[in-house]
């Protein structure tokens, strides 16, 4: 485990906790895409099925369980507990346009044609685009609450740090996994536009709003 990966995991965890706390404290999930959160629950579930098949470390198992639990807590809050505050009218991204292509791609391009491996690959592909419903929602309403911006920023930083982790692993372990790297690159690129807005606006104390 290198520093980039650890900080990446930490950043991912911080992102999730920020969002959970935001919803819980404000008793509202306004501005949050339930579809993106549901997709993340699918991503974690399909990727971490290896919890049942092999043990890597207590850190690994612990983080996986926490991510899965948090993602389901999020879905429960949005679609059940605070359903009345969910902004479904603006959450109109068609998720089948993400799920179907990534599922097909996972069948075509994978390391090993076995159920667990295909599901793992699917989760990697799906994760890279799972934030799109949320970004679409922000662009549709033209703004995001500052705390939502922090969430998106921390989530974007997570995969960016993983890119550095993969460069590190290639350099010092001679190891690389093209599936993870390409998907991670796509995922990071999707955040670039948002990173720009975050740095130029949110960090200067302004609310994130898009020009009309």
């Amino acid at each position: 485990m290198n520093i980039f990966r650890f900080l990446g995991d930490l950043s991912h965890l911080i992102a999730i906790v920020i969002l959970l706390l935001k919803i819980w404290k404000s008793r509202s999930c306004a501005g949050i895409s339930g579809k993106s959160q549901a997709l993340f629950a699918v991503v974690f579930t399909t990727r971490y099925l290896d919890l049942f098949t092999n043990f890597i470390s207590f850190y690994n198992t612990g983080m996986k369980v926490v991510y899965i639990a948090c993602s389901y807590a999020m879905v429960w809050m949005i679609y059940s507990k605070f359903k009345a505050t969910y902004d479904g009218n603006h959450d109109t991204f068609r998720v089948e346009f993400l799920v179907a292509p990534t599922a097909i791609l996972a069948f075509l391009v994978n390391h090993d044609f076995t159920p667990l491996e295909i599901l793992w690959t699917f989760s990697i592909y799906l994760e890279s685009v799972a934030i799109l419903p949320q970004l679409f929602m922000v662009s549709k309403t033209g703004e995001a609450e500052t705390i939502t911006s922090h969430y998106l920023f921390a989530l974007g930083v997570y995969r960016t740090l993983y890119l550095f982790n993969w460069i590190w692993r290639y350099q010092f372990e001679g190891f690389f996994d093209l599936i993870a790297i390409v998907a991670g690159l796509v995922q990071t690129i999707l955040y670039c536009d948002f990173f720009y807005l975050y740095i130029t606006k949110v960090l200067k104390g302004k609310k994130l709003s898009l020009p009309a």
Binding site: H12, D177, I179, A180
Partner: peptide
Amino acid sequence: QEPNKTHDEL
């Protein structure tokens, strides 16, 4: 068969 190495990542 040994699992792919990135599978130790989150």
